[in-house]
């Protein structure tokens, strides 16, 4: 099933099944979280192989992911719940490791894990450990962030080099005995979004998204579709660490489609671009922030990449796993 890759298949699944069944005005925009009664509310499940990888584990991933979804709503993340599904026989030592890193991540993000649940399922029915976290955040600022709010002329900013988490996981899976100096980028982004929103004036930040599954390419495609605008990226402006670039080249994977767990894409009004960049770069997690493109009017719904050679390539939402298209 290609529904997990974060591409068009996932969209179709979400729209055909979940939106159809649960349709209501709060769910409809399909943002990372919902805003209800002055609170931001979100939930996410975490499934990752391997559970422990360079730079993190499923525990801090589960905390940071939900913290980031709240932060992308413009909220201050406050309280989290954590639900565990454990496979019978899962080592307690591993569970301790996971909970320790969850606690550390919560501390770093300044949130409390206030409730939880645990279920144990038969051997073979789960991949060791699955975690679901939900989170509540408070909306301290008058922001209305939405993937549908981008306007022609706006700039597209990424908070740092992309692709580190996804490539780290791929290399950590073991079938690939490849040496690379890479760690996951998993990190809480709430401090960064706070700085950004405080620095830019009201309404100047149009949209924030953490570039998780499907990577930056998928996020900007969502913005292009929701805002009915074109997104024009500059290939040379997209920050990619050499180790990631090398691994991507080896694996034949486009870093634009690789997941990050501590990077976000911000769409910002043109006149606030400099202020936004300065605010992001003032924080260690945003030190590598860069303007990677612009919003255009035409063609609506498409993402274009200006290549180093001056060509214009379409960066499409993938239907499933990437497959070569060359005959």
């Amino acid at each position: 099933l290609a529904h997990g890759a974060g591409g068009k298949a996932t969209h179709t699944l979400i729209e055909a099944v979940f939106l159809e069944s649960f349709r209501n005005p709060l769910l409809e925009p399909l943002e990372d979280g919902a805003v209800v009664d002055g609170l931001a509310f979100t939930t996410d499940s975490y499934v990752v192989t391997p559970l422990f990888f360079p730079g993190g584990d499923i525990g801090d991933l589960a905390v940071n992911g939900t913290v980031n979804d709240l932060a992308m709503c413009g909220a201050r993340p406050r309280y989290l719940s954590a639900g565990f599904i454990l496979e019978e026989g899962f080592p307690v030592a591993d569970l301790r490791r996971i909970t320790a890193s969850m606690a550390a991540a919560a501390r770093a993000a300044d949130v409390w894990i206030v409730t939880g649940d645990t279920k144990v399922v038969e051997r073979g029915k789960a991949d060791g450990c699955y975690i679901t976290t939900s989170g509540v955040g408070t909306l301290d600022r008058p922001t209305r962030l939405s993937a549908a709010a981008a306007l022609p002329g706006d700039v597209v900013i990424v908070s740092g080099p992309i692709g580190e988490h996804g490539i780290t996981i791929m290399l950590a899976r073991g079938e690939l005995d490849i040496e690379a100096d890479l760690t996951s980028d998993t990190a809480p982004l709430n401090a960064l979004t706070g700085l950004l929103l405080d620095a830019c004036g009201d309404g100047q930040v149009r949209c924030l998204r953490d570039a998780t599954r499907g990577g930056v390419a998928t996020i900007v495609n969502e913005v292009a579709a929701a805002s009915k605008v074109a997104v024009v990226l500059e290939e040379d402006a997209i920050p990619v660490r050499p180790a990631v670039r090398g691994a991507c080249e080896l694996l034949g994977i486009d870093p634009l489609y690789v997941a990050c767990e501590g990077r976000m894409v911000a769409v910002v009004a043109e006149r606030s671009a400099e202020v936004a960049l300065a605010a992001l770069r003032s924080h260690p997690l945003g030190a590598g922030a860069a303007v990677i493109g612009r919003i255009g009017g035409d063609p609506p719904g498409l993402v274009l990449l200006k290549t180093s050679f001056g060509g214009t390539r379409i960066v499409d939402l993938l239907v499933g796993d990437p497959l070569p298209r060359i005959c």
Binding site: E175, L250, L251, P322
Partner: peptide, 22 residues
């Protein structure tokens, strides 16, 4: 890069099987 590419080939990561003549 020989050993790495062989490892990629064997892992199946972004390495679909092909019967291509080209």
């Amino acid at each position: 890069h020989w050993d790495d590419v062989v490892a990629v080939a064997r892992s199946g990561v972004n390495s679909p099987l092909t019967s291509s003549a080209g």
